[in-house]
Nucleic acid binder design. Structure first.
Lengths: 184, 184
DNA sequence: TAGCGTTGGAACGATACCGTTCCGACCTAT
DNA sequence: ATAGGTCGGAACGGTATCGTTCCAACGCTA
């Protein structure tokens, strides 16, 4: 199996996903965009879902852990800057919302999102646990809500309302989060 | 044109949208689900998009303004409870994320979301302006970020992570918002 | 009872896509 | 030079859907 054909197919798959959404994504168009034959797809993956799983994993939409920056606000800022970079990606900002929509309607893609969420949660959890360890947040904090709050506003601003979020606005979001996280 | 046929078609359209997403929504299946003929659809609407516009408007996914409750935290609580009720709706929680996904990829549906956003923004704006008027929030608040923050965490918790959000958790979100909104 | 509007369902001609199979051509290793 | 793996593209038999047109039947009104 030639690697460059595989890579082309994965890339074409993500491009088609970004344009049409997963539900209306056609493997025939994926093959055409990759300059390959459909046989080349079915030689590698048994189904559209298998391709999707592979594409998401290899594409690296997973957010990594944020290294300890010594203070909650610094960790939050690093995390939000990383998230902003990810959400600015031309493909991520179209595919991620579609993944959420698919999961909401109980699609076969729901497990893919679950895998993504597991790694993202790990990032959020360690950030919060470090803050608790430093005494910056109470140990009784509602961790679930905390992990909702951290990415939510930036996602909303960038994806739902499709605005550019400046560094100053990220600073403000950090301010709001530092204040808000004390309260839950 | 019989009203009951029109209503059946609109309802069937929303059901199919919830199941398949807009991109893969088939008018043939809509007609079948409504127990009507395709001609009945094309007699009323020239296109799938026209039907979508009508369906969203008549379905009332628009959030109404929250009446003045005398304090920011009361207004926020009322707003979030209303939002929770809307997002708990079996169809809303599947269609709204799909609308966001469609808009993200520059779909023909983007104007539909724009219309929804206009009315939702109005709700958020008045809530914030009232708080400023009462001196509960500074006049220099970043209004855009504020309106991101208000619905974002609840949306994230209910839609992205698909959890049930309790009244206690809404109270905590209100606490976080009251604290966080002071900071931006 | 008659007339008119509207109906559901099917057919139409068309395109699109699925998953599989095929085959001459290409590429690489021996 | 040869052999084997892989390729792109097309065909296959099939299903699905589009938007339009048609028509017998129904429902309602005069």
């Amino acid at each position: 199996m030639r690697d460059e054909v595989t890579d082309s197919l994965l890339r074409a798959f993500l491009e088609e996903w970004a344009v049409h959404g997963y539900a209306a994504l056609s493997l025939e168009r994926v093959a055409a965009r990759a300059g390959a034959g459909k046989a080349a797809i079915y030689r590698r993956w048994p189904s559209k879902l298998a391709l999707a799983v592979d594409a998401v994993q290899k594409f690296g939409m997973v957010l990594t852990d944020v290294a300890d920056k010594g203070a909650l606000r610094n960790d939050l800022e690093a995390y939000l800057l990383m998230l902003r970079r990810a959400l600015r990606h031309r493909l991520v900002r179209k595919i991620l919302p579609d993944l959420y929509a698919e999961a909401s309607r109980g699609s076969e893609l729901a497990p893919v999102l679950k895998d993504l969420s597991v790694s993202r949660r790990r990032g959020g959890v360690s950030l919060i646990e470090r803050a608790i360890g430093r005494g910056e947040l109470p140990a009784v904090i509602d961790r679930e809500l905390a992990m909702d709050m951290i990415p939510a506003s930036l996602y909303w601003g960038m994806i739902v309302t499709r605005r550019r979020i400046t560094r100053v606005q990220i600073q403000r979001q950090v301010d709001a989060l530092v204040a808000g996280l004390q309260a839950i």
